[in-house]
Amino acid sequence: MLPLALSDVAISFPGLAEPVLAIDALSIPAGGRLAVTGASGSGKSTFVNLISGLTRPDRGTIAWRDTDIATLSESGRDRWRAANVGLVMQEFHLFPGLAAIDNVLLPARLAHAATAEVKTRALDLLARVGLSRPGQSVETMSRGEMQRVAVARALLRRPGVIIADEPTASLDAEAGAEVGRLLIELADQEGATLIVVSHDERLTERLGRRIRLAAGRVVSDTALEAAR
């Protein structure tokens, strides 16, 4: 599990006067739970991209324990993310034509990291997210099942942090609740830090802390009674 400390982070895009995101200081302890909410366009996805190393801030430090990913090169961030971050997005980004198990293993295989141990773990994870047919082709799955495959993929390489951007937004209430429950449960079991961007009250209220963004700024930061 990884602790996160942001300081003096800002990013702007060409043509925009104000920075899209500006965070003076934010820290999350190792194994912490954070929900991020805010209106559309408030900078939530930009936040996810920054802390997962997909984009680089204009200034500031994004320190995951001792690693300031703001100083890493693009391929350095790729490598760091592969080893430390489990990403779950609103869209599943699964590859049609491949079985569930092959989708879970695909990034690891492409990184030559799919050892026998990793393969066993992939099967185990599929079982833990409640999928009993690892050989099923993903395009034949329901949306809820697809997102559970994506969750298993995110957890494969024992990431120190799980970052999810609207993981339940494209699912119906029931499937969304199931995926939300799995994320929290697996983060607990694996001891991973969990950061979830969501509008879904039922999901965010179960995380220990909630920040709200507006126009790229943190406008509220609330500790919640963990309703677990």
Partner: peptide
């Protein structure tokens, strides 16, 4: 694929 951990060269 890259976001999920595949190397750029792959």
């Amino acid at each position: 694929l890259r976001a999920f951990g595949a190397p750029r060269l792959a």
